[in-house]
Design a protein around this nucleic acid. Structure first.
Lengths: 138, 138
DNA sequence: ATTACTGCAAAGCATTTGCAGACTG
DNA sequence: CAGTCTGCAAATGCTTTGCAGTAAT
């Protein structure tokens, strides 16, 4: 199922490829990773990918996030479903979470009048593979 | 109240100043901001601040975090109390939250065997000042 | 034909690394 | 004194910007 093409943006080969990559991936990717996945024959330049992602973000097609333990921005297709991730501190794998702690929670902010628009939750720890290696190592 | 000096680290003027700055501040600062606050007379070099913060982090004296909407790492003194922040999307102010949604919540991760070690919650929106300006603007 | 998009090069920042001299324990 | 830190310079890596040619509407 294809996402609707964002209004006002020209449909070009590069942009379609970027969107394809994100559509196939269920975990967020960095701009350079997207670049690499397209790679090969019709190489695409990082600057173009960054500009494309910037446009896509403005149009709500993708979300830009930065997860713990890395300062590289990653992008995911906006699937219009509420989602959070667990990040492996060892291999940096990003695994989707199935539930959200904010469903039944009202944040209390130390600044009267702060208008809460959204939230971002990240869980960190060790993924199955890495947790396993660690315990073997004993 | 001073934090205990981390074991194994030499006590130098620079490190004490970095710690002072963090002790006085209740919101996280970037390495360069810390640098600037020390500034003036006995200037300190960014590389040194980064190295200092790295050591402090390893020793659990500070926490390094990256909040939404900025890819610059910020550091806060580890006050050993569980804390989360609200980030203003307009002025990037960081305001502490008073409660935590994870207290009564068990994350369900789509990877059997993922060992959860900790979490990171961020709320975003508009701080009192910015929310106010926005509505005046109408 | 306009206007937006892309390749490409070069600049911008935050952050890291290397090294010799300075300082701490 | 030995080992650790620091000033400083230079390198790195992600990301942004500028510009002229190319493609989309």
């Amino acid at each position: 199922m294809k996402s609707a093409w964002p209004e006002g943006l020209k449909k070009t080969k590069t942009r379609e490829r970027v969107l394809d990559v994100l559509e196939q991936e269920k975990c967020p990717l960095s701009a350079l990773e997207i670049c690499a996945r397209i790679g090969g024959e019709g190489a695409v330049w990082p600057s173009t990918v960054y500009r494309t992602l910037e446009q896509f973000e403005k149009n709500g097609v993708v979300n830009r996030l930065t997860v713990m333990g890395s300062d590289t921005a990653v992008y995911e297709l906006n699937r219009f479903c509420h989602k959070h991730y667990a990040v492996c501190m060892s291999c940096h794998k990003i695994v989707p979470m199935e539930n959200c702690p904010m469903e039944a929670f009202t944040p209390r902010v130390q600044d009267d009048g702060f208008q809460v628009v959204g939230h971002n939750v990240e869980v960190y720890g060790y993924c199955a593979g890495c947790a396993c290696n660690k315990s073997e190592g004993k």
